[in-house]
Design a protein around this nucleic acid. Sequence first.
DNA 1: TCTGGGGTCCTAGGACCC
DNA 2: TCTGGGGTCCTAGGACCC
Length: 585
Amino acid sequence: MNTVFVEVPMSSTTPIAVRPIGRAVALPGEATLPLMGCRVRAGFPSPADDHLDVEIDLHAHVVRRPAATYFVRAEGDSMLGDGIHHGDLLVVDRSLEPLPGRVVVIAVDGEPTVKRLERRGERTFLMASNPRFAPIPLAGRECQVVGRGHPRAPCPAGRRAVIALVDCNNFYVSCERAFAPRLEGRPVGVLSNNDGCVVARSNELKALGVAMGAPLHLLPPAIRRQAVLLSSNYALYGDMSRRVNRILDEFSPDVEAYSIDESFVGFTGFAADGLEAHAQRLRETVRRDTGIPVCVGLAPTRVLAKVANHAAKKQAAFEGVCRLEADAPAPRALLEGLPVTELWGVARRTAERLALMEIHTAWQLREADPKQIRRHFSVVLERIVWELRGRPAIVLDDLEAPRQRIMVSRSFGRLTGAFADLQEAVRQHAARGAEKLRGQGSQARAVMVFLRTNPHQVGERQYRNSAVVPLPAPSDDSRALLSAAARGLEAIFLAGPRYQKCGVMLLDLVEAERHQLSLLAPRSEAARGRSQRLMAAVDRLNREMGRDTVRFGLPRMGTAWALRCERRTPRYTTRWNELMRVRTG
DNA sequence: TCTGGGGTCCTAGGACCC
DNA sequence: TCTGGGGTCCTAGGACCC
């Protein structure tokens, strides 16, 4: 192999021997550098070829290794039958006719991946999800069926649903540690916007008694000295989250990203006895390829999967994977020791009311009469009871569906009473909202603006207000949204109070394609086309050249509303100029 | 003395999630 | 000096209709 030096996210330019394992790169010591999906610049001696996407190189390395067993899973039962049974070994190109939409989970040397089958002439290929990679010919290779059925469809009668909750441990902290191994073992916290509160804590920081959401300025000085407290770096966390989910996609075709650090993964139809091992491989792969530790909870329902995940995190004996069957004895012991507030969907208010009925633990709630729970509380809590009993009752709405409203708001770096500051902040928020709006293909029919002083500050004059400004016609044009927001601000601004926060909400969203044209203000097709092209150009520039390449209105320097984020680490994976440098030889 | 009975739609606010 | 930023769903209650 050529001697290369690679600019990748690492903390120094010291020469380091890099050894590829899978799609990650091993560094001296324990640290693993996540490279998957990461565009990494490599300096090659040849001037003509001074860029290399290392992902391709490392992936090729994996593919070259001798194939072992393929674990195959079909969508629906169509792939089975014809003498093919659960657990069979198959020769792919003779037995599997590629059908549209057929998806398989295969594992090559313990590297599971979801692929589509495609027929080319006489041979069947696995199509890689990334079109840059060459198809893998399957002729003559052996496959093992480990499951069947489509988890997104309702679970067929007589078959048990299995759902996994994959949750990243201390996600923001883990992202920081992935790129700064020196943070391992130390108390680390990540702060909210404006460096206000602690929103993520390493186990070491939790052990020091720092609560979730603790205000930074109220932390004891000893802890502030001892701990590493970082500003949040959402560009990094969002990118790492996508990488984790891309790996989950290789373990099941049914992955729902529920939040930035949690995903539900459907395993209904997978061979029941191999599931823990499959989950264990998932954990190891995520850890190795991204540096993020995760825990997996397996159960028949989402609520129980959450409980299982909780147990997997708290009890070392599970080694990160905990499986619960609704009727086995283990869940009972677990649920009896679990306060209701630990359950997904039960917080303080509900817990207080449950306590009046002598319901304190998850087990007691499970044993309660669902109908009575519904009467006293709501259908939401009733569903939780059913789920605790192992009967699926919570269906996540389509997480891909467009948002019903879009909100952008920020606290100011410092209080301000200046109208010009608020104007500019509102303009920025409206522009960002408009971008999100176009990103999901919607238009808004109304814009809401709100502002408020700092409610925590006694002695300060308090004021909060909001205004809704309807638009004459649904729009996704930044100019229309900005001008509506500006009018809203004028309506509610009061000179005198010093403001802490303002925001813009886009309301009453409709699909851009389907909205009815306004009869009152018909716009010519040409005008609409111009608006669309302009906005598309703005979005593309901001996407490709970095946010704020094109802005509406001139930014002023040193404005009060600018965020404080003095301790932010580099955006290692999303900014060229923030990549770290590593030398390999 | 007696003052209907349903239904829909909308909004505000509560509760919860991460 | 300094206390985040998004979202969702559900319910209650009012306005209104026949």
